[in-house]
Design a protein around this nucleic acid. Structure first.
Lengths: 350, 350
DNA sequence: GTTAGCACTCATTAATGTCGAGTGCTAATT
DNA sequence: AATTAGCACTCGACATTAATGAGTGCTAAC
C-alpha cells in the first residue's frame, strides 16, 4: 500500500511534470511548500514509487517521469477539482453568443475553442444523424440532364447532391416523384431511409411513372450517402505549442495519425455517458501509444448523443481537460436542446 | 549583357539549388557534364553573376544561392519545358475518374492532388459565385420558430441557412413569400441579389403580407452571406517535406500565414488568364516575402473564371509547377464546361 | 580567355571538458 | 524507527576547441 506521503509525492511529481514537461527531481520537489521533506526522504519515496511502477527514469541519474500506470493512478485517485479562470469561462460562453446558429457551426466553433483553451487537438463527433428524420425532399432541375436533390432534416441540416436525369423525363415526372417521396418518406429516420426507399417507395414510383426504374436508379445514389457521421477536428496546429512536438518528424507522425489513422471507432469506442480517459497504450489503436484521449458525450435529444474528444500527449493536463469537457458537454446539450425541434409543429405542410 | 556561358551557369545553379536546397559551389557544378569548365572559370562567372545581382552568398565562403532577381530571370528566360512522368499524368487524370461530381468536390480533389504532386500547398479559388444566378428559392419550416432557407444556384450549388421565424406567421405566409421570391428573383445573379432584395422585393412583400417587414428582416440575414468566394487549401502538411520547414517555428509562421494572413485578394490580385509567377517580395503581402506564388486561372463558363495557386518556398520547382498548373487548369475548364449548365432548360418550372 | 595553385573563410562535425541536477547508499540525527 | 546530512557517482546539457572540407578570391602560368 502507499503511504500518505508517497501519495502526495506521486501527485506532486505528476503535477509538476504535466506543467514543466521536464523530469522531476527530489531536490526540486522538496522546495515546494507542499512537500516539507528533505530531498533524501523524497528520494526514498520516489525509489519506492518507481519500484511499484508508478514512476520511471529517463536515464540512470535523471529525475522521475510518470509511467502510464502512474498517470492512471493519478487520474483515478489524485485528481484535484480544477477551477477555471475567468478568461476560460468567457471564451467558453462566447460560443453561444449569437442567437440562431446551425448545429454544424456550433460544433465547429466548440472544437476550435476547446483546442484553443487546451492547446491540444479536439475531435468532435457531430450529432449522430441516423436518428434524424426527413423533413422534406426537393428536386430542382438544372438543365436537361442534371438536377439537384435536396433533403432537409428535422434538425435543419440540409444535404444536397447533383445527379444525372436520364433522357426522356419531364419536369412534371420529377415533380410527381418528389410528391410521392414526400408523401411516403417524410418522418423517416435516416437510418431507415435506404431500406424504405428500396423496398417500398420504388414499387410505388414504378406504379405511377413510366420507366421510373431508370430515374430511380440515378436518384438513389444521390441520396444514398447521406447518413454519415462526421468528425470535426479543432486546432490541429495548437499541438505545435506542446514541447513534445518540437521536432518536425513528430509533428508529421501526429498529423498522419490524425488525417489517416483516426476513425470514429478508434476514438469513440464506447460512448457511455460521462468522461472517459484513455492513456497511451490503453487506446486500442497501435499508433496512439504516445497519446492520451479524453472523451465525453453530450446529449442531442432523448435518443441521440454526440461525442467530444481531446487528444494530446500523455503528459496532459487531465484535470483541466476533464473540467472543460464536462462544462462544454453540458453547455452543448443545453444549447442543442434549444436549437433542436421541440415537437414536429402542427402546421406541417402537405 | 550576359555571355552564353554565364546564362548556362546561372541556369545550372538555379536548377541545382532547386533540387538540392544547398548552396551551389563551383567545384560541384564543374562536375556536371553540362558544364565542361574548370571550377576557376565557373568561379569567375559566378562572381560576375553575383555582381549583377543574380546570385547571392549565404556567407563569405559559401556556395551561391539564387537571388530573387536570379529566380525572376530564370523564370522569364531559362525555364526548360518539363515533361511529366507517367505517374503524374495518372494522378492528374484520376481526378476526373468518376462521372458526375459536384464542382466543389472537383475543386477539393484537384487541390489535394496538386499538392501531392508538388509537395507545396495549393490554394484553389472556387468558381466566382457572384455571376451565378438564382435557380430556386425554398423555405422549409422546422418548427414554430425556425425555418431553413435554401437557395439553389444554376450551377447546382446549394446554400442553406437556418433562420428565426417571428411569431405570428403561418406556413401559408411563408409559402406566399417563397412564391414571390421565386417569381421575382429567379435568374438574378448573386451579385445583384442583395440590392434587388432590398430595393424591389421588400416593397412587394410588404404589399402582400401583413407585417412582412419583420419576416423579411430575419430572412434577409439568412441569405445575405451567400455570395462569398471560397478558398480551398490543399496539402498544407505536404509543405513539411520541404527542407525549408525543418524548424517548428517556421512551420508555425507558415501556418499562421495560411490561416489568417491570406485572403482572396492577396493571392489572386490580377486574374489575367494564363500563368503568373510572383517571387518573394513581388507578392504584395508583407509576410509572404519568403514564399513564391504561382497562379493560374481556369474557365468556368464564358464569363467566370476560377483560380488556382501554388504557394511554396522561393526555391520552388517553377518549371514543374507551371506545367502542372497549365495542365490542370485546362483540364478543369474542360470538365467544368461539361458539368455546367449548357443553357437554362426550356422546361423550367413556374 | 582559361586554368592551376595558393592562402583564406566559414559551416559542420566530432572530441573534450565543465557544470548542475540528479541518484543511491551509509551514517548521523531526531 | 523515521528522517536527514553527506558523499561519491552518473549523465544530459552546454560551451569550447580542433579537425575537416567545401567554398571563395586572387595571381600567375598556360
Amino acid at each position: 500500500m502507499l503511504t500518505n506521503r508517497q501519495l502526495l509525492i506521486l501527485q506532486l511529481t505528476v503535477d509538476d511534470y504535466i506543467q514543466s514537461a521536464k523530469p522531476v527531481g527530489s531536490r526540486q520537489l522538496s522546495k515546494k511548500t507542499e512537500a516539507p521533506y528533505s530531498p533524501a526522504t523524497i528520494r526514498n519515496d520516489m525509489a519506492d514509487l518507481e519500484e511499484m511502477g508508478f514512476l520511471e527514469k529517463t536515464h540512470s541519474s535523471s529525475g522521475r517521469v510518470p509511467s502510464e500506470k502512474g498517470y492512471r493512478f493519478y487520474v483515478d485517485h489524485l485528481l484535484t477539482e480544477r477551477k477555471l479562470g475567468r478568461e476560460d469561462n468567457r471564451q467558453l460562453n462566447s460560443i453561444f453568443g449569437q442567437q440562431v446558429m446551425e448545429t454544424e457551426e456550433l460544433i465547429r466553433k466548440s472544437a476550435t475553442i476547446l483546442s484553443d483553451l487546451t492547446n491540444y487537438t479536439s475531435i468532435l463527433l457531430g450529432p449522430d444523424s441516423s436518428m434524424q428524420t426527413v423533413k422534406r425532399f426537393s428536386i430542382v432541375p438544372l438543365d436537361h440532364e442534371t438536377a439537384v436533390a435536396i433533403i432537409v432534416m428535422d434538425s435543419g441540416q440540409v444535404e444536397n447532391r447533383v445527379f444525372q436525369v436520364p433522357q426522356g423525363f419531364t419536369a412534371s415526372d420529377i415533380e410527381k416523384m418528389v410528391n410521392i417521396l414526400n408523401e411516403r418518406l417524410v418522418g423517416t429516420p435516416l437510418i431507415h431511409l435506404q431500406k424504405k426507399l428500396l423496398e417500398e417507395t420504388k414499387v410505388i414510383l414504378e406504379h405511377h411513372i413510366d420507366q421510373a426504374g431508370e430515374l430511380y436508379t440515378s436518384f438513389k445514389d444521390a441520396i444514398a450517402i447521406t447518413p454519415e457521421e462526421r468528425l470535426y477536428f479543432g486546432g490541429k496546429l495548437n499541438m505545435m505549442n506542446q514541447p513534445e512536438f518540437n521536432d518536425v518528424e513528430k509533428m508529421k507522425t501526429f498529423f498522419d495519425l490524425i488525417e489517416k489513422g483516426i476513425s470514429t471507432t478508434t476514438i469513440f469506442e464506447d460512448m457511455n455517458p460521462g468522461v472517459a480517459v484513455k492513456i497511451g497504450s490503453e487506446n486500442n489503436h497501435n499508433a496512439m501509444g504516445d497519446y492520451s484521449v479524453i472523451t465525453a458525450t453530450y446529449a442531442v435529444d432523448e435518443v441521440t448523443n454526440g461525442s467530444i474528444a481531446i487528444i494530446g500527449p500523455k503528459r496532459m493536463d487531465y484535470g483541466r481537460v476533464i473540467t472543460l469537457l464536462n462544462l462544454l458537454s453540458s453547455d452543448l446539450s443545453r444549447e442543442l436542446a434549444r436549437l433542436t425541434i421541440n415537437e414536429p409543429s402542427s402546421k406541417e405542410e402537405k
